[in-house]
């Protein structure tokens, strides 16, 4: 029984990190309908910023959030403004040109990181890295618990933002129906720039919170991009609550899969769920929860 509980706890905590990674993606995919294949790479950029701040200015990762999120917001907005938006006007054979552009962006970000920081592994190890809370024999890793809490807070914040503020409403309108939003006077181009920036800022939070637990190298992005898709499809496009539920579902199923099937197939578990949801539950959990 202890095995089961500890596995589920590990899965839920991991789910918090996954949710943070996925929430930005769900926003971007929901509004712009493009797959952002540079998502993990944006997270990697945020992690390098966190690393530099910690290494040279001794800034705690939790404080660094205040730097990385705005920085990635700016970076994301610029990418959307100058690299992705121009493609809407370009006539091309494949509508997926924006997706392919994100592949290029991801490659360039990874290689720039490699050029500056080399392939070495970097890590940030504040004293609380390995601290754990114990309930009986069940361990809760402290940084992961905090990350989970922040994931929940960001989800609630984003939810309220999208529901209550004018900008948020415009974002939702654009996501639901771009043409109608345009008719109603929403500047769709500006909204997409804002959304991509926001998505990047959210994944920056994920990166910064992940760094004390994990480590850092230029190629880290790809794996997390994949997780972000799974969560987005699982939770439903554009659904903030879906992202957190999707994250936890993914985390727990991977954990259970790793413990009870095989650790080597841990990532395959996520992929199989992903396929099943794509085929049998298009729309994801959002279809069930309606939020």
């Amino acid at each position: 029984m202890a095995v089961f509980i500890q596995t589920v706890v590990a899965g839920i905590l991991m789910g918090g990190i996954y949710a943070l990674v996925g929430i930005g993606m769900t926003l971007i995919m929901g509004v712009m309908k493009i797959i952002n294949l540079a998502h993990g790479q944006l997270m990697m950029v945020a992690m390098y910023i966190t690393y530099v701040l910690y290494e040279y200015l001794h800034l705690d990762p939790y404080v660094a959030l205040l730097v990385t999120m705005p920085a990635l917001f700016v970076l994301g907005s610029l990418l959307q403004r100058y690299l992705l938006n121009p493609l809407i006007k370009v006539e091309s054979i494949l509508p997926e040109n924006q997706v392919l552009m994100t592949v290029g962006i991801g490659m360039v970000l990874t290689e720039l990181a490699r050029l500056i920081f080399h392939s070495d592994y970097k890590s940030v190890r504040p004293p609380y890295t390995s601290m754990s809370l114990y309930a009986g024999s069940i361990a809760f890793n402290l940084p992961m618990v905090i990350a989970f809490g922040i994931a929940v807070l960001l989800t609630i914040g984003l939810f309220i933002f999208l529901l209550k503020t004018d900008v948020g409403k415009s974002v939702r309108a654009t996501a639901q129906n771009k043409e109608a939003a345009l008719l109603l006077g929403v500047n769709a181009e500006r909204i997409t720039v804002f959304t991509y920036g926001l998505g990047a800022a959210l994944v920056a939070a994920a990166g910064t919170l992940l760094l004390p637990i994990y480590y850092l190298f230029p190629d880290l992005g790809g794996a997390f991009t994949l997780k972000a898709f799974v969560i987005t499809i699982l939770g439903g496009l554009g659904s903030t609550v879906g992202a957190i539920v999707g994250g936890v579902v993914l985390g727990v199923s991977e954990s259970l899969g790793a413990t009870y099937i095989s650790m080597a197939l841990k990532d395959a578990v996520g992929m199989v769920i992903f396929l099943l949801v794509l085929i049998f539950l298009p729309g994801g959990l959002k279809r069930l929860t309606k939020i």
Binding site: T7, L13, Y214, A223, M263, K266
Partner: peptide, 15 residues
């Protein structure tokens, strides 16, 4: 047990 290198969470096998 084998694992994919670069994992974040090894707790499932460690459990």
């Amino acid at each position: 047990e084998g694992y994919e290198h670069g994992g974040v969470d090894f707790k499932p096998i460690l459990v």
